[in-house]
């Protein structure tokens, strides 16, 4: 079987599914000043697992919106305007749904796969670890 290190190069999915891989990628993104994109990606996964009957879930949706989308951060810049509008409306109308961040996460993930992930695989941080 492939070692974890080899799997990291196969896809972003494998990298982020591995504790050491996710940690190293996070260190890389901190250096590139775009760690928010990864935190947002994990926040979307965490949100999807939350219980919609729990009052905390609506609060978390609002916090994710405020922290990453409303403030025009790097995450917001990588997201389509229609996607941001959809999330803003959902939060405002309290239409909380497990899938409400799915499209946004997909857009951020595609950007990560095309850019940060490719850069990571040729970065000093990765090569030194290998």
């Amino acid at each position: 079987p492939d070692s974890p290190l080899v799997r990291w190069t196969k896809s972003l999915h494998f990298l982020l599914g591995d504790q050491d891989g996710a940690h190293l990628f996070r260190t890389f993104l901190e250096r590139e000043n775009c760690v928010d994109t990864l935190d947002f990606w994990f926040a979307c996964n965490g949100f999807r697992q939350m219980d919609l009957k729990d009052s905390k879930t609506a609060r978390v949706a609002k916090v994710i919106f405020k922290r990453y989308i409303e403030n025009n951060s790097i995450v917001a810049k990588q997201m389509k305007p229609a996607t941001k509008t959809f999330i803003r409306d959902s939060v405002k109308k309290q239409q909380i749904d497990s899938a409400m961040f799915d499209q946004a996460q997909t857009e951020i993930q595609s950007n990560m796969e095309e850019n940060a992930y490719q850069m990571f695989l040729t970065s000093d941080i990765y090569l030194e670890y290998v």
Binding site: Q19, A43, G46, K56, V60, V63
Partner: peptide, 20 residues
């Protein structure tokens, strides 16, 4: 009640990969 930061951090941490 949890602060906004705590809520977000818990949400992120819950989705992080666990030890191999």
């Amino acid at each position: 009640m949890d602060s906004e930061d705590d809520l977000l951090q818990k949400c992120i941490t819950s989705a992080m990969p666990k030890q191999r």
